[in-house]
């Protein structure tokens, strides 16, 4: 029978700590592998149209007639009503900062000196809190705040490729937009 003694569990902590230095200096037996693999994804009708419209300098959404949502990023079905969405709708290229971060870390967790301004923008003309993640620019980090009105800055038409990066970033919206 196991007894309910007051001694501390776990009673011991098995395992052997090694440092990254041990690995780098080959003090431990190890092996190394760098995968070489590439992927190509066909994007499906909803995101394909969305990205092609970005190439045209426009943001497009899908509407669900049942829950009355104007949905962006668009999808061909509504995940809540669980039915096909009903129509395409162009929305604005302005919006509101829902949240943001001032990042001193890049995609590989490397430290960077000039911070990346990143956040979620809800797009004007879509349902509340419907939008996507993107960068911010033409502002100081301390100017960026939740609730700020922003506007897309587009790449020159010739440089657009049908990608989310066809928008360079969002900048402060002053004087009521276009």
């Amino acid at each position: 029978m196991m007894s309910m003694k007051k001694e501390g569990y776990p009673k011991y902590a098995p395992g052997t700590h090694v440092s990254r230095k041990d690995i780098r200096n080959k003090n431990k037996t190890y092996t190394w592998w760098e995968p070489e693999v590439q992927y190509s994804w066909a994007m499906g009708p909803a995101i394909s149209r969305f990205l092609q419209e970005l190439k045209n300098g426009k943001i497009i959404a899908r509407c669900c007639n049942k829950c009355d949502r104007v949905i962006v990023p668009p999808r061909m079905f509504c995940e809540y009503c669980y039915k096909p969405t009903d129509k395409w709708l162009y929305i604005k290229d302005t919006g509101t900062v829902e949240t943001f971060s001032i990042a001193y870390l890049d995609g590989d967790a490397r430290r960077i000196k000039d911070p990346i301004l990143i956040g979620v923008i809800s797009i004007d003309g879509a349902s509340p809190q419907h939008g996507f993640m993107h960068y911010f620019g033409e502002m100081k980090p301390e100017e960026l705040h939740i609730g700020m009105k922003v506007k897309a800055v587009w790449k020159p038409e010739k440089e657009r490729t049908g990608a989310i990066t066809d928008i360079k970033y969002f900048k402060p919206l002053k004087g009521g937009g276009k």
Binding site: L51, P73, D106, G107, M133, I164
Partner: peptide
């Protein structure tokens, strides 16, 4: 891979 990855997200 369509919207988040091209921004080099962490």
């Amino acid at each position: 891979p369509f919207l988040d990855r091209p921004l080099n997200t962490n």
